[in-house]
Design a protein around this nucleic acid. Structure first.
Lengths: 146, 146
DNA sequence: TTAGATTAGTTGTTTAACTAACTATATGCC
DNA sequence: GGCATATAGTTAGTTAAACAACTAATCTAA
């Protein structure tokens, strides 16, 4: 028997990701309000480079769940803004290793603080155990569709 | 005391909507595979018109959580494909009322079946009460950010 | 050693999102 | 009635996503 939990109206918002769209849009507004000239998509790339840079574009694809052309263009734009630098790998010249610049490092603390503050507000009034369940369900959804 | 539930890696995927992106991408692939020439974004507009058409573009904005230019262009493209028709309102000539065509009606049953099947697969193995909690949390997130 | 397959990244095209600036119609107030 | 304001929708410009087709470098196996 199918696990059909979705009334029509809910189906729509689950598929279109109403909540995550609202989060991303809100975070973008906070960046703009703080005078940070960076898009959410660019931030999502820097996010992984801040953890450890010198990653290849291919590694950034997996980390951000984007395809290769998307990463090429995001890195293009980040490079234009002098936030990252492409460095051809010594050992395999097909590969570009991506490094963050000083200017990008400066962005880290401020943007991460804004992101954490946003999530705390978004989840205000939600008990921790329910947040955990939500995270688990979303992870299963993701895994089921791989 | 802040409700800071997010370890760094999870923060990213919550903000970028990994699960909903996967769902939308997967549904688009099913549409393509079935030979249905329609994008997810177009589908999300038709979805609301199938429930009741003759809605204004402004009403479609609220229903789909998009801004006005986005709806203008989605309706442009839907009209090009002869899936909807703009009809100027008699009572207020600023308003376009949007009606679905016969061809769009034909799409309804097939696309809705694909969407429901997808969600059933995505949520396979998740107990109903956990799905409910997940939906509730996402709704609260959305409401908190309005 | 070299021909074929694989991998990393780029380019072109279409669709879409967001912002800002715009036109046209309607409303409200004096 | 007429002017300010609000509302519905469009247009322009930038950024981004998905897909297909491409180049260049590397690997593999005969």
């Amino acid at each position: 028997m199918p696990n059909n939990q979705f009334k029509k109206g809910e189906l729509y918002s689950f598929i279109t990701g109403k909540a995550s769209t609202a989060i991303a849009r809100n975070l973008q507004k906070r960046f703009n309000a703080a005078g940070l000239k960076i898009t959410i998509e660019q931030w999502s790339v820097l996010y992984h480079l801040w953890k450890e840079d010198g990653k290849s574009q291919q590694e950034l694809c997996s980390a951000t769940f984007r395809d290769k052309p998307s990463i090429t263009r995001l890195v293009d734009n980040l490079e234009k803004q002098q936030l990252v630098k492409r460095v051809p790998s010594e050992s395999d010249r097909r590969i570009n290793l991506i490094y963050v610049t000083r200017q990008a490092q400066k962005l880290q603390e401020e943007t991460m603080a804004l992101a954490e503050a946003l999530l705390n507000e978004a989840l205000e009034g939600v008990p921790p155990d329910r947040i955990d369940i939500c995270k688990e369900v979303l992870q299963i959804v993701y895994d089921n569709l791989r």
